[in-house]
């Protein structure tokens, strides 16, 4: 399904990947792990297309990965319009991905996290944890095939982590869906389909 072939990427004199390859053959949630600075975020950004590789290819279902295939969530809560409401943000970013979501769908997703009362709340009024959940919902609304999560559970309490993990398990039931989760938490309540060690 997802195939990374002979990938190389350097920044100035710092080589992070040199002829790096791996394959993920089945749908599922995969854990990406490695020490700080080893290139976890860089790898996710390469898959998303935020960075271009020096060499090599990234293919999904035997085709070059395209922007619409991948959603990327990081731990950064800045990437929203803080003066707009939760709904206005999700509405806009969904349109940016050519997915025009219904308000009801967002309401239902929020309800799953016990946050349905926040639909029309200004984004800046949310807590860090709530912002991360909104980032998750925004990514899911884009209907990606590959969901990349870069330390994006770091601000969540245990119950919210459980809720997100339950969603992830549900998300990858579909055949073509892959989640690559980068986390330093060894006790996440989810069954990983595999581990990518860097």
């Amino acid at each position: 399904m997802l195939e990374i072939n002979a990938l190389s990427k350097s920044f100035l004199n710092n080589t992070l990947f040199d002829n790096f390859s791996f394959r993920l053959d089945t749908n599922g949630v995969y854990l990406l792990r490695g020490a700080n600075g080893v290139g976890k975020t860089t790898l996710l950004k390469l898959i998303k297309g935020i960075l271009l590789p020096d060499q090599g290819s990234i293919r999904f279902q035997n085709k070059e990965v395209c922007f619409g295939d991948v959603a990327y969530i990081d731990s950064n809560n800045r990437s929203f319009f803080h003066r707009l409401s939760v709904w206005q943000n999700i509405d806009y970013f969904s349109a940016l991905n050519k997915h025009f979501v219904e308000k009801d769908r967002v309401f239902n997703l929020l309800r799953n996290f016990g946050m349905s009362n926040l639909l029309l709340t200004e984004f800046s009024k949310l807590s860090s944890g709530q912002m991360q959940i909104i980032a998750f919902i925004r990514a899911v609304c884009a209907k990606p095939n590959i969901l990349l999560m870069d330390e994006s559970l770091s601000n969540l309490d245990a119950s919210r982590i459980t809720q997100v993990c339950a969603h992830l398990s549900q998300f990858v039931v579909e055949k073509s869906k892959i989640v690559i989760l980068c986390s330093h938490d060894k006790n996440l309540p989810i069954k990983f389909s595999g581990v990518i060690d860097l």
Partner: peptide, 19 residues
């Protein structure tokens, strides 16, 4: 750039120039 969603603009289904 400052709000942190430039990467979303550059890597969405809508082209950056159209955005």
């Amino acid at each position: 750039q400052m709000l942190g969603f430039l990467d979303m603009f550059l890597n969405s289904r809508i082209s950056a120039s159209y955005t």
